[in-house]
Design a protein around this nucleic acid. Structure first.
Lengths: 193, 193
DNA sequence: CCATTTCACATACCCATGGTATGTGAATCG
DNA sequence: CGATTCACATACCATGGGTATGTGAAATGG
């Protein structure tokens, strides 16, 4: 059975990404050895370097996929609700819950900033979750639900708060308590009716 | 001139810590090579391993010192003000400003969580800045200035928010805007007079 | 005051691992 | 159907963290 090169390439690439995701999530970037990832994916290190320019390159691709997936989950959770405010809350809750996912926890929250450098990490974050948050805050401000203000710094603050909270939960913090605390923070932003 | 061993030991250790601080702050943990640190400190790699059990061990010691210094600066900034609320604000502002310090930025905020692992990093953070924040929040709650609530999750949220904001400022974000946004968040916590 | 021990390093070495250079056989193209 | 490309495999190199051992000067103690 003749397999087209494009197909084979896609299959191999996917296998590397999948195995990379597993190992990066389970062991953390530094403890992962690229040759092992390749072997578990059924190829050799040469294949990995054919598809990605470096170990960090594979990691970057994995990060992008995880980011994207998380962004979609959060957006989907938000859209289940009616009203800008409830959508924001639902998105935040979804994000906090996602912190229990080892892939999100170890890859996105712990390793990504160091491995990719903070600038590149932020750029990736911007494309997925951060952008949604900014949009949501803008809409809330436009609707008069929160005070009119520059939303970028506020989004950074909330993003950082939720990152930390997600890690805290993943490490054993009480999810309900974190949710309530975040709710209080958000509620404090509302303009008095 | 005969130099006592204890003196010599202290001098060498200090030189390693100082040079390590410089390099870790400037280049980031991974790009720092231990032998170079030792050479710049006037000794060899052997000396470094005589004083610290590993590269990460030296980094850990540097982190502890930076943490301690930062905690003291924040506490000092807070104590210049009267009233629990103004002290909290002053401490937060000081922390945000500290993010421009490359040592704080790269070592504490970017590398420490990955290199030391999140658990150990948090333990170190707890001893210095985080504990102060928790104390401040407890005092505010006891005084009725903010609502009575579990302060730990709230402290984590605020800590994460400020970490992120500090990085954002260091990378070029507007310090004033970040300060204002943080002020709004904090203000939202106050119980209506 | 001298022999012995300790200690603060220096020297030499190992080896894991990221990265590279080159080979190869099967798909693709003209 | 030959020439070429491509998706890898194989072999190799170099850096750097970690270790094992040597050494000479300070501490110890008799």
């Amino acid at each position: 059975m003749a397999v087209s090169r494009a197909e084979q390439r896609a299959v191999t690439r996917r296998a590397l990404l999948d195995e990379g995701l597993r190992r990066f999530a389970a062991d953390g970037y530094h403890r992962v050895v690229l040759a092992e990832v390749a072997r578990a994916a059924g190829v050799t290190k040469g294949a990995a370097y054919h598809h990605f320019d470096s170990k960090a390159g594979l990691f970057r691709a994995v990060v992008a996929e995880v980011q994207e997936g998380l962004g979609e989950r959060v957006a989907a959770a938000a859209e289940l609700h009616e009203g800008l405010w409830e959508q924001l809350r639902a998105g935040c809750r979804c994000f906090l819950a996602a912190g229990t996912d080892p892939a999100v926890r170890q890859i996105l929250l712990v390793d990504a900033p160091t491995v990719l450098g903070w600038d590149e990490w932020r750029a990736l974050d911007e494309e997925s979750s951060a952008r949604h948050l900014v949009e949501a805050l803008k809409a809330l401000a436009a609707a008069g639900i929160i005070a009119d203000q520059p939303v970028e710094p506020l989004a950074r603050l909330l993003s950082g708060a939720m990152n930390e909270a997600a890690l805290w939960i993943a490490r054993g913090g009480d999810p309900g308590a974190a949710e309530q605390a975040l709710d209080r923070l958000l509620a404090g932003l509302r303009t008095p009716a």
